[in-house]
């Protein structure tokens, strides 16, 4: 499988009043037609990773190290013109709040056709036709009428569909989704997830899907990378992560879910809170909250152990698992 995205030892540091080591040595890859989930809690660096891929982080206050290759190009080396062609045509992004991501003063149709004209140099008529086609693709009812609707005239679910239409208008190879269903109601969330799943198959694109919700990840991802304190602590297929997590953090996370928990019974919890990120980690970031921590966990950064099958865990416990036996 060709790798569409290859991130190698990515480090992102926010400078300013306080230094925040947001991403610390993240490496992952994304194959063609694959849906990778970045799963983590707030502050785990999942959104920052996604934004780094598109170079959306504020230039002045961010220091990025490492390498990001998307579709064979070095993203960190792109100049401004290349970057604006790269965004939208190769990679495009959908956000949690479509109300903020869509321009309130243009109609949905104008926004989509503008993107098509800019990236593909189509005529206004062709672009409008594409806009209509895209609204139909995302199953917006009475699409023709909706072309002339402004974002504020649509409900939350419709706006999210419109944003997906805008993101997919130029047939990008990769779609980056930053918690696109978090702000939606449950009955709408499932519709959007199913739509994304369907479109991903139809367009054959690759998706990186950022979420904090394991249930959402289960609905859409093929592979999952679990993030904690700016690092990927475990990568594996969805089934591996959900059925038999290796790292204690995803284990704790799965155990603490309220799904299927008996009333009156105490929930399993992970004690403590995530570490502050004002220093780069020198040991395992999870060790202070980990029941299985050993002395060596805090002494040195645990290596990323490849346990075979493309599965990785950044934990000393994974050493016991023989590669290839899984």
């Amino acid at each position: 499988m060709t790798k569409l995205v290859e991130v190698e030892n990515l480090n992102v540091r926010f400078t300013g009043e306080r230094t925040v080591h947001a991403i610390n040595g993240v490496s992952f890859s994304l194959g063609e037609g694959e849906v990778l989930g970045l799963l983590g809690e707030s502050g785990s660096g999942k959104s920052v990773t996604l934004r780094a891929l598109m170079r959306l982080l504020p230039k002045k206050r961010t220091v990025i190290n490492g390498s990001i290759r998307v579709a064979g190009r070095d993203v960190l080396a792109l100049d401004d013109d290349e970057l604006s062609m790269f965004r939208g045509a190769t990679v495009s992004m959908i956000f949690q709040e479509p109300a903020l991501a869509l321009d309130p003063v243009y109609t949905i149709g104008q926004q989509i056709s503008e993107a098509v004209i800019r990236h593909e140099g189509k005529s206004q008529r062709e672009a409008t036709a594409r806009a209509l086609e895209m609204l139909e693709v995302v199953r917006i009812p009475s699409a023709k009428r909706r072309l002339d609707a402004y974002p504020h005239e649509m409900s939350g679910g419709m706006r999210q569909r419109a944003m997906i239409a805008l993101a997919l208008a130029c047939k990008p190879k990769i779609l980056l989704a930053d918690e696109p269903t978090t702000a939606l109601d449950a009955t709408v969330q499932i519709q959007i997830l199913l739509l994304l799943r369907e479109l991903q198959r139809e367009f054959g694109m690759s998706v990186i899907f950022v979420t904090h919700d394991i249930g959402v990840a289960i609905e859409i991802c093929d592979r999952v990378a679990v993030m904690y304190a700016g690092q990927i602590v475990e990568t594996g297929t969805l089934r591996q992560i959900v059925r038999s997590p290796l790292h204690p953090y995803p284990r704790g996370l799965l155990a603490s879910t309220t799904h299927g928990a008996k009333r009156g019974q105490r929930l399993e919890t992970i004690p403590g809170t995530p570490p502050s990120l004002d220093k780069a980690p020198t040991g395992c970031s999870f060790a202070p909250r980990c029941a299985l921590a050993e002395a060596r966990c805090t002494e040195a950064l645990p290596p990323a152990i490849d346990v075979g099958d493309g599965r990785m865990a950044r934990c000393v416990l994974a050493e016991r698992i023989q590669p290839a036996s899984v």
Partner: peptide, 8 residues
């Protein structure tokens, strides 16, 4: 029914 599944 709209709850995300718990089983891959």
């Amino acid at each position: 029914a709209a709850m995300p599944a718990a089983d891959p």
